[in-house]
């Protein structure tokens, strides 16, 4: 990993996490899926750098818990 930040980079981790979950409160599965898709596109555009994005795709594809088992 060269460009993707994989150490904690967000202030107030618990608050951030609560906000992320609140985003999906009382949403159907389909609505949540739509929200996630919009969120990913917004964030990917914000990151912009293709190499960083590909590194994130690689990590997202990997099932971390399974590989540790």
């Amino acid at each position: 990993m060269a460009k993707l930040i994989t150490t904690l980079h967000i202030d107030g981790a618990d608050d951030f996490y609560a906000e992320l979950i609140a985003l999906h409160a009382e949403r159907t599965r389909e609505e949540s899926e739509a929200i996630n898709a919009r969120l990913i596109l917004l964030l990917c555009n914000h990151v912009g750098d293709r190499e960083t994005l590909r590194e994130a795709f690689t990590e997202a594809r990997r099932d971390g818990a399974a590989s540790l088992a």
Binding site: E33, A34, N36, A37, R38, I40, L41, L42
Partner: peptide
Amino acid sequence: SQASRAFRDAALDL
């Protein structure tokens, strides 16, 4: 796929 449609609709929406 369902995921492909979700991203398609998200791109159109945005």
